[in-house]
């Protein structure tokens, strides 16, 4: 999905940069706020950025006979909501633009917009939708389905936006923007379908690992819903055990019945 350096006309490059900039600034703000609110979140924030780093470095073959790479932005969008990924995704894209000549500084805005803005938001929307639809299923199944949908949608929508960006910049002589979009989407989006499935599966694996070793963290982030006994009903459960323990507590025993009921 990297639009190569200089491959967007200056006006469009500037427009995409202007479109992406507020999201990135807001993303940096959300990131610092998330860390300040919960310093322990640093660990998973780092992992979310790292996941994006790993996946976007891996070129995977596709059934179309070409190869491309996943984006890895779905994980962070689910764990920390999409704004944070605008910041973390930009770091990844900047690294690739500066050291790998993948993408570029002039096209950074457009690439950030597709991979770090639209991808995470589309993925997050898919996550919420699937979680709502699958709320009756066992928690691990529902979470897995939601995460898969998030990663799949984030990956595919990123590449579709890239196709659209290129089509807007280079309309086909015969087919116009729509014709060019079909050409670019054939290259990007069709190639990406199996890769999005791979990305979805790998993201589910990571979330399963995290929900085993980092159960508390995921519960605190609200990603993993506690069983009703643990979560909402948890207070009720605690009350129930309190009433059982109350007779042993001297203070309560001593209070007159009238005050206790009042």
């Amino acid at each position: 999905m990297h639009i190569a350096e200089g491959f967007l006309p200056p006006a469009q490059a500037a427009a995409w940069t202007a479109a992406a900039a507020p999201f990135v600034i807001h993303g940096v703000y959300s990131l610092t706020r998330a860390v300040r609110a919960d310093p322990e979140a640093k660990l998973l924030l780092g992992a979310s950025g790292a996941f994006c780093f790993v996946l976007s470095a891996l070129k995977i073959p596709s059934v179309t006979g070409s190869s491309s790479h996943p984006t890895g932005v779905g994980l962070g969008a689910v764990l920390f909501r999409p704004p944070v990924m605008a910041a973390l995704g930009t770091v990844t894209l900047l690294f690739q633009a500066l050291l790998l000549a993948h993408g570029g500084l002039t096209t950074l805005g457009a690439n950030v917009f597709s991979m770090a803005v639209v991808g995470p938001w589309a993925g997050y929307a898919a996550y919420r939708l699937v979680r709502a639809l699958a709320s009756r299923l066992p928690e691990q199944t529902s979470l897995g389905a939601g995460v898969f949908a998030a990663a799949f949608t984030a990956s595919l929508s990123t590449y579709t936006i890239t196709s659209l960006q290129l089509a807007l910049a280079f309309p086909d002589a015969a087919g116009g923007v729509a014709g060019a979009f079909v050409k670019f989407a054939t290259i990007f989006s069709i190639t990406q379908i199996p890769l999005s499935v791979v990305e979805g599966l790998v993201t589910v694996v990571i979330v399963r690992l995290l929900s085993t070793v980092g159960r508390d963290q995921l519960l605190r982030l609200g990603v993993l819903r506690g069983r009703t006994a643990d979560g909402d009903g948890g207070t009720g459960g605690a009350d129930a055990s309190d009433t059982a323990g109350r007779p042993q507590e001297p203070t309560i025993d001593r209070t007159p019945d009238g005050e206790a009921t009042a």
Binding site: M1, H2, I3, A4, F7, K59, P61, G65, S66, S67, S68, H102, Y159, T162, L166, F170, K183, F184, I187, F188, T191, Q192
Partner: peptide, 11 residues
């Protein structure tokens, strides 16, 4: 299995 990014450049 050439890269999709490079194919887009060609297009």
């Amino acid at each position: 299995f050439s890269g999709a990014d490079a194919q887009a450049e060609e297009t």
